[in-house]
Write a protein that binds this DNA or RNA. Structure first.
Lengths: 245, 245
DNA sequence: TGCGCCAAATCGGTATACAAATGATGGCGC
DNA sequence: GCGCCATCATTTGTATACCGATTTGGCGCA
């Protein structure tokens, strides 16, 4: 246990980030109970910041409060993935349409840069490239939403997307499918350049629904392409003991 | 200060509800700072539940945390109304489409009942009818979303709609416009009966965008209909002293 | 041997005490 | 007289102690 806490950052935020990271990383079993005291000793802070963190996580939907006021890690199944992709398709296509119609040249160029980086990442395929692709993909979608300037829309999508999903999702794509995905990103960028909101929205919708199809059915017959599988998991070191009980 | 606290309900939840009510009711000036100590003494609870309440309210977007870690009541203007109606149009039409395609007869009947009650409320126009109409309207939209069974969608819309808006919105409608609004509700119900998701989605979209137009431009030339204006406020009894400062 | 009740421990909810940081105000010096 | 610095007050962040409720395990009785 580190004696020198990082006093620079608020401890409540640290606790929030750490607990969130653990949940998203899958360190905790779904439905496993989280006790404030346990997390408190685990993180080396008192129960108060842990409580604040759990409150925020509950609002995010990452933990649930059972009737007996017991807090457990949220569970989800196929229906949740269905919901998430459906909502993303609706919201992100809406956002793409808005953004494309009003985007500045600078914003469009930013998307172009991201596409460029993606191409390079694909071409190079250095160790860890899957993680980089995931990051770039998230960045692209985030940039599109940011371009709308619609803070509420951004928060809405953020509250949905941030789930132990995105990680594994990319893994379901074959390289061929990844190339197609990037091609769609390029098309969206082009729609931005033409200020064609309808086109942008349409592509974004297809893009996400394609992702849904691949995530749900693409596992069966992957063209695979086995790269170094460790690269997919950004946190390889052995984790702390799992949930209590 | 009441000595006999209602120990039955959790104090944090009470604090959340009360602070939320005050914000939505407009008791606090937009951008006015909320101090934990002040709310604590106001509500008769300690700072801890107040903190929890403020955390939740921040997640809801009803309060904002300024850079200097000062918490203020969220401010909004016309652009927020624009955002909200736009998102409602997208999300609720999506929900209506989903729900209509899968709705049970019982769910459709529930909508029918609500339409019936609306007709009666309009015909009677008893004191407080505007408040009742507001409640029925909210209930209708909530029922449609509930019929989707999409918990995430429900939460998303809830996080947007619950805003110091709905109250005043209804006031902007003329009676003629209210009748039209209910007529659209009836059409949505009919679409449910026919399991016509596309139709339902389309009506819902028009319905909400009409609401946007009335809210934004309908104030200028209202056919008015001045009823007792107090009826609009569902909490008539003199509440605790207003915001500090 | 099984069922039920009681007791003890565990955990979440609340209050409060304390520390750290930030903003304001007043005084002092130039 | 103006500006800067120091001190103080206000407020948030954190820790901890206490209380009530719920659950669990054991013991006793049928």
């Amino acid at each position: 246990m580190p004696a020198d806490r990082d006093t620079a950052r608020p401890a409540a935020e640290t606790a929030y980030d750490e607990i969130r990271r653990r949940i998203v990383a899958g360190d905790y079993e779904q439905g496993s109970p989280l006790t404030e005291a346990g997390l408190s000793t685990d993180l080396g802070v008192s129960r108060t910041p842990v409580r604040a963190a759990l409150t925020r996580l509950a609002a995010d939907g990452l933990v649930e409060q059972k009737s007996n006021r017991r807090i457990v890690v949220a569970e989800w199944g196929d229906s949740d993935i269905e919901e998430i992709f459906g909502l993303r398709a609706v919201l992100e296509s809406y956002g793409a349409g808005l953004a494309a119609a009003t985007a500045t040249t600078a914003q469009t160029n930013d998307l172009e840069v991201l596409c460029q980086k993606m191409d390079e990442a694909l071409a190079a395929q250095e160790p860890g490239w899957l993680a980089e692709v995931t990051a770039l993909n998230n960045e692209f979608h985030r940039s599109v939403l940011e371009a709308t300037g619609n803070r509420r829309l951004i928060n809405l999508v953020a509250s949905i997307v941030e789930i132990p999903l995105t990680h594994r999702t990319i893994g379901a794509y074959s390289v061929r499918q990844l190339e197609n995905s990037w091609s769609e990103h390029r098309s969206i960028t082009e729609a931005f350049r033409l200020r064609d909101g309808e086109w942008a929205a349409s592509i974004m919708r297809s893009h996400i629904l394609t992702g849904r199809a691949i995530t749900q059915h693409g596992h069966e017959h992957p063209t695979a392409y086995e790269l170094d599988p460790l690269a997919e998991d950004p946190t390889p070191q052995g984790k702390q003991k799992g949930p209590r009980r």
